[in-house]
């Protein structure tokens, strides 16, 4: 049984994704880190589905569908921001800063 190691790897990948979001300024790279976190969650789902029933694997399908929708809309937003500001660096996108 590889349940414990799988959950450990999942935790490592999720923490790396969070660190990436906090570390980077490029909007596209931050987006890729979010995908990394979704994949870490998928790994945990699949590992638990091995012994606790098939529902975990079905959830992975839904996560993938949501990730695909999120990628399409998010990248469209990044394109629109680039057209407006000529940059995807989040340092220059600070309209909400007081």
């Amino acid at each position: 049984m590889l349940l414990g190691p799988s959950l450990g790897v999942s935790a490592v990948l999720f923490a790396l994704g969070v660190a990436g979001v906090l570390l980077r300024r490029n909007a596209i790279v931050i987006f890729m880190c979010v995908e990394l976190m979704l994949n870490a969650a998928n790994l945990a789902f699949v590992a638990l589905a091995q012994s606790l029933g098939v529902a975990g694997q079905i959830f992975v399908f839904f996560v993938m569908a949501v990730a695909a929708a999120e990628a399409a809309v998010g990248l469209a937003i990044i394109l629109a921001i680039y057209r407006h500001k000529q940059t995807v660096d989040l340092q220059n996108i600070n309209l909400l800063k007081g």
């Binding site: 049984m1 349940l3 414990g4 959950l7 450990g8 999942s10 935790a11 490592v12 999720f14 923490a15 790396l16 969070v18 660190a19 906090l22 945990a44 638990l48 589905a49 091995q50 012994s51 606790l52 029933g53 098939v54 694997q57």
Partner: peptide, 26 residues
């Protein structure tokens, strides 16, 4: 924050927290 989250996840995500596995049902 990444390290903190990692240790939190490791503490919470032990196999015993997921209930007793019933063998290879999948």
């Amino acid at each position: 924050l990444g390290g903190l989250l990692f240790f939190q996840l490791l503490r919470g995500a032990t196999p015993s927290a997921a209930g007793t596995p019933a063998g290879d049902t999948m």
